[in-house]
Amino acid sequence: MNVNMTTTDTSARIVLSGHVDEQGAEELKKTIRDLDLGQVKDVTIDFREAQRIGSAGIGQLLLLYKNLAVAGGGLTVENLSPTLFELFKGLKLDTLFTLSRV
């Protein structure tokens, strides 16, 4: 899996590609750790090039969401495949953060 992050003053965009399995979740965790959540309030995660995400990867999204919410920010997950979009909806993650599909 590859993680590509770009940041502006108060926002960040993380583009994931490949499979966010357990190993991918560890890489995502490191990327999230590098975020300055004192500055960054809104994070968008782009799944356009990500084929799959497992429970460990979803766990990392939730940790990020919690940290952003505490600081008054928000998380957006966009360009989910239909399969992943339905999975996220089934998990009711759309009640926590904004989801969009390709």
Partner: peptide, 12 residues
């Protein structure tokens, strides 16, 4: 349980 970072394997 929505914000718990684990416990989704069986759901998946």
């Amino acid at each position: 349980n929505l914000c718990r970072p684990n416990g989704r394997g069986i759901f998946i």
